[in-house]
């Protein structure tokens, strides 16, 4: 199988100067390597703040990595000139969590979807045809294309954002928590839609979510991220039947209502077990398996 995306030892350090004037770095992504096959469906799971989005932005070169290499279809993105990189941009798109903030409230749906197409110099007639086709694909009536985002429900807005991501005929889509803001019944509609268009357009997905159950439903391979590192990567079946990492097990056990960790055990049971193991070290810790050296209140008080 051919890899569409390949990351080698990607590191992203955020630098900032504190009140004392000293510049410090924070390693948001720490030595991450993996690859995504063509038409693969790769899931990235982890809790908020673990570096999922930073990694995605580094892969897309929206925020280039501090070190390490990203290959897209065999070409190293870091070695490209800005103009060349722009040509690659077209082939990869991203869908964010909140469709309210990712659509311009003052642009009609038609205008929002036109922007990229105008940039590549597409004629109006061809543009209209394409936009109508895409809206139809995501289940929005093309008669509504002159409307503004506020006239749509959240679920419809997310469909519009997906249609916009597709205007450039990308091969690779990053879906960053695409359904976390949606209600259960609407979430199901959008997930079905994403799986349908993936099939139809032969897309490659990087699906990011904090919800391991959802990621497992959608993806074939899963990488579990914890504090900037990928702690485990496996096929979905493998990860669920035989989780090797302690954090993966905690995550699986935390799925409410189910309890994937052990047969019959609920999340609460497992968390209790875990916390017993960790109480000695983490008196006020909120995350059971926190082990690093983060200098904040979550650490053990002395």
């Amino acid at each position: 199988m051919e890899a569409l995306i390949q990351c080698r030892n990607v590191v992203k350090v955020h630098r900032g100067r504190g009140l004392d004037g000293v510049t410090r770095g924070f390693k948001a992504v720490d030595d991450v390597s993996f690859f995504i096959e063509k038409s693969g469906n790769f899931g990235l799971v982890g809790e908020s703040g673990c570096g999922k989005t930073t990694l995605a932005r580094a892969i897309l070169y929206l925020d280039p990595p501090t070190s390490g290499k990203v290959f897209f279809d065999g070409v190293e993105l870091g070695g490209l000139r800005p103009r060349q990189l722009r040509a690659f941009r077209r082939r990869m798109q991203i869908v964010f969590q909140d469709p309210h903030s990712s659509l311009d409230p003052r642009m009609t749906v038609y205008d929002s979807l036109s922007e990229g197409l105008i940039n590549i110099g597409m004629e109006r007639a061809a543009r209209t045809k394409k936009i109508n086709r895409l809206l139809d694909l995501v289940g929005i009536s093309s008669a509504q294309s002159s409307r503004f985002p506020h006239e749509f429900s959240t679920g419809q807005r997310q469909r519009i954002v997906i249609a916009r991501a597709l205007t450039m005929d990308p091969e690779f889509l990053v879906l960053d928590e695409p359904v976390s803001n949606l209600d259960v019944s609407i979430q199901a509609q959008v997930i079905n839609l994403l799986l349908d268009i993936k099939e139809e357009l032969k897309l490659t997905y990087l699906f990011i979510s904090h919800d391991i159950n959802l990621v497992a439903y959608v993806c074939d391979r899963i990488a579990v991220m914890y504090r900037g590192k990928i702690v485990e990567e496996a096929s979905t079946e493998e990860l669920f039947s035989n989780p090797k990492n302690e954090y993966t097990r905690t995550l699986l056990a935390s799925v409410p209502g189910g309890g994937f960790g052990r047969s019959g055990a609920t999340a609460a049971d497992i968390v209790r077990d875990e916390s017993i193991k960790h109480t000695a070290r983490h008196v006020v810790s909120d995350t059971t398996s926190r082990t690093g050296n983060e200098p904040d209140m979550r650490e053990e008080p002395r």
Binding site: V184, S185, A188
Partner: peptide
């Protein structure tokens, strides 16, 4: 019933989620 069927579950992978039509 439909709400229950619309929850994605890793154990029912590949099966289409029940989406409740309309608003």
């Amino acid at each position: 019933r439909l709400l229950l069927m619309s929850i994605p579950d890793a154990r029912r992978k590949g099966r289409r989620l029940a989406a409740i039509a309309g608003q």
